[in-house]
């Protein structure tokens, strides 16, 4: 039966191409970062002794001379990063010291920081957005402030926040808060003010109280627009959390990237970048699954 096979082949084709690109990328990376072989026969024993004392060369398991990988410059290859991934995931939940926690812990700290700031900002933003969206007067009055505050980088608030709360733990959360506030405010106001008049008329006709109107008509009606705003906020908060950790020295995956750089461990830096990417993809996937439950098709 050729038809189902054909179908499988067609549905697999994009992933096959993705795999080819991934393998191609790793091959180029490996080729570009390959260490030259050390030719021991070209050096006298005195030279070899000197080079070993300098740490330029080391003996491998077979006792042959090799370049010392830790001393040579340039980017580490995929093999070195893979080794790093294996070691780090192997001790994911090990605490070796005050600032040396396993990657599992670091992801946990970042997620806690991220969600505390994001959820708090979303609640505030949706309430503010509903108020602004329901009142054209308030919308006009507050719009200049929102326009002024919106383009400010969330990191620009950091010194002021640090000075005010005097605690890096809360400052990092507040930076995430500031990053995820404005897109949700703007979209909620838009969604609420553009709600079809018919829905509000029905709500008035069946004599709903304000609270019931809010939860059964206004918020569900504006939900698709609010969720689009939350999604922008989500991305913005994810971007802000990494530099906030770096600058504040708060344990997390952004901090990992910086501390590995301080250790001059470039494999570690690459590992941290990969972790940030993977965590971002996982969060975005979870969020889109959640968001799909709150959208509806307009008549």
């Amino acid at each position: 039966m050729p038809a189902p096979l054909d179908k499988i082949a067609r549905s697999c084709a994009p992933y096959a191409i993705s795999l080819v690109f991934a393998l191609l990328f790793i091959a180029v990376w490996a080729g570009a970062t390959r260490q030259p072989r050390f030719d021991a026969s070209a050096h006298s024993p005195d030279q070899l002794e000197l080079m070993e004392m300098n740490g330029d060369i080391v003996r491998d398991e077979q006792g042959a001379w090799q370049f010392n990988a830790a001393k040579t410059g340039g980017l580490p290859g995929p093999g070195a990063v893979w080794d790093k991934i294996k070691t780090e995931t192997g001790e994911a939940f090990v605490k070796k010291g005050t600032n040396d926690h396993g990657i599992g812990w670091l992801i946990g700290y970042t997620l806690r920081r991220f969600f505390t700031g994001f959820v708090a900002a979303s609640v505030v933003a949706i309430l503010l957005g509903v108020l602004i969206g329901l009142s054209p007067l308030l919308f006009k009055a507050l719009n200049p402030f929102i326009q002024l505050l919106k383009p400010i980088s969330p990191l620009a608030w950091m010194p002021l926040l640090l000075y005010t709360v005097k605690d890096p733990f809360w400052t990092a959360i507040l930076v995430v808060f500031m990053a995820s506030l404005w897109p949700t405010v703007a979209n909620t106001a838009l969604g609420v003010s553009n709600l079809r008049k018919d829905y509000l008329r029905v709500a008035a006709m069946v004599e709903m109280s304000f609270a019931r109107r809010l939860f059964t008509v206004i918020l569900p009606g504006a939900a698709p627009t609010i969720i689009a705003g939350l999604r922008i906020s989500f991305g913005s908060a994810l971007v802000a959390v990494v530099p906030a950790e770096m600058l504040l020295g708060e344990l997390g995956i952004g901090y990992l990237s910086w501390i590995e750089w301080n250790n001059l461990d470039v494999s570690g830096v690459l590992f941290a970048i990969i972790v940030v990417g993977v965590v971002g993809v996982a969060l975005d996937f979870a969020f889109s699954r959640l968001a799909a439950r709150f959208t509806y098709s307009e008549i």
Binding site: Y199, M205, P220, G221, Y296
Partner: peptide, 20 residues
Amino acid sequence: TKPGLERMVVFQSFALMPWL
């Protein structure tokens, strides 16, 4: 003076909540 349950409207546009 204001809308109420004693006067129910059937709308040309149906005015049904699409999420319900």
